[in-house]
Design a protein around this nucleic acid. Structure first.
Lengths: 230, 230
DNA sequence: TTCATACTTCGATCCATATCGAAGCATATC
DNA sequence: GATATGCTTCGATATGGATCGAAGTATGAA
């Protein structure tokens, strides 16, 4: 009585601890080599190689060969979103022992989700954009309004550039730590890039954490504080 | 380097074919006995019993004892949503062989997703409600507008009743067949109930399929066709 | 009480697969 | 060419866990 797609196939793929560690590491958005992924998962290269083949066969990751290195990345934004949804489930159905670790705090505040910003600051930005009608829900999905175009334009993002690329401009992505939406899609990616470019924040090495500087945080607060450049 | 929740735990839980078949069966929203679930999964009672214990321990399902029967159901709307997201991934990353089966067609058009309607007709209704501003995206999430309250009121749904219950009134849920949102939450549940109560459609036995009668379909079309009772 | 049904527990089996050592390719560097 | 590095393939091992038969427990019916 199997109705619908074969869910067990990919759940099983994600369900191995070594593979899920690799996938989690790839949530940082960086493409990683097989050796790096092996060390992330705490296994040998041979084992990692066999796992990576399975992930490739399952179309969860893509590969790009560069010299003698093989760089792996998540196949798709949808894969990232699925992982976040699973994290949300794991978070709330987990036995109580899974309490807010010390390092967790930084992740909850701001982290990378594949290629865009996630965490409290991301959902606050999202809420701000919804609240000021910069983003609206249309039948076709989430859309950027004219006011929103001005808003991100003042932030230094050229929408014309983004629209040219393939893929959705705006996407919702469920935040596991906040249990609500943040912005994904190429606009989400551009916003994260701009935050980093302007030096408001920097990426923690070997982590998904995004660390804001005091000045950067203040500017971010001003951005969503009310006098957002509209 | 495990950051964030332990995703492997529940992915592994879902990843077993027998268990995923059980969970898929529970997506119909009906509570099923252990024996029924065993037959759905094609395994013996003993095996099913051990699987069900794991699902219980993992908080993916709940149990309600009734006499000598033990009725199992999905623990939560979030579990259902996660399963749908995984279905979407499985659908699109699956090797091409996964083509639209014959029975699939009905499921794509209208099916039950835990306790609300999914499929083409559900996403069309959702689009209609968004397009007419019956539903809007607020910082707090999806909300029903005043016009929307009138719309569903004319359809025979008393919002005051629903709001009293715990849980969210409106929720988005990603549709695996349409790859876009449909309406979940207690309002989604009420709409499905009303559709069935009015005899517009009936549930197929032992299936997630929802079959509309010609008359019911016509009325549904009229509802979203433009002169929706607003 | 006796029997039937629904389900669980126990024990044994058996298979999938995660794992790593060792060897093999391929690409880069000297 | 020789050597090092990144990665894969092969082979062997071992372990987890899915499976079912048989027996045990609980609830309901006769």
């Amino acid at each position: 009585m199997k109705e619908g797609p074969d869910i067990a196939r990919i759940a099983n793929l994600i369900g191995d601890p070594a593979r899920s560690n690799m996938l989690t590491a790839l949530m940082s958005g960086k493409a990683l080599t097989a050796t790096e992924l092996a060390s992330e998962a705490g296994i040998t290269q041979q084992t990692a190689s066999s796992h990576l083949r399975k992930l490739l066969d399952g179309n969860l990751v893509t590969i790009r060969q560069q010299g003698r290195h093989r760089y792996f990345a998540l196949a798709d934004e949808r894969v990232a979103r699925s992982l976040e949804v699973l994290m949300e489930l794991a978070q709330t159905t987990g036995h109580l022992r899974t309490r807010t670790g010390p390092a967790d705090v930084r992740l909850r505040e701001a982290r990378v989700c594949y290629n865009h910003l996630a965490g409290q600051m991301a959902t606050r930005l999202f809420d701000h954009m919804i609240g000021h009608n910069f983003l609206a829900l249309a039948p076709s999905g989430l859309v950027l309004t004219e006011a929103g175009t001005a808003f991100v334009g003042a932030f230094g993002i050229d929408i014309a550039d983004l629209s040219a690329r393939r893929g959705h401009l705006c996407r919702e992505c469920l935040d596991w730590s906040e249990r609500r939406s943040h912005l994904a899609g190429s606009l989400g990616r551009a916003i994260l890039a701009r935050i980093l470019d302007q030096g408001w924040a920097r990426r923690e090495a070997n982590s998904r954490a995004v660390v804001f500087s005091p000045r950067g945080r203040a500017q971010f607060e001003r951005l969503i504080g009310g006098e957002g450049a509209t």
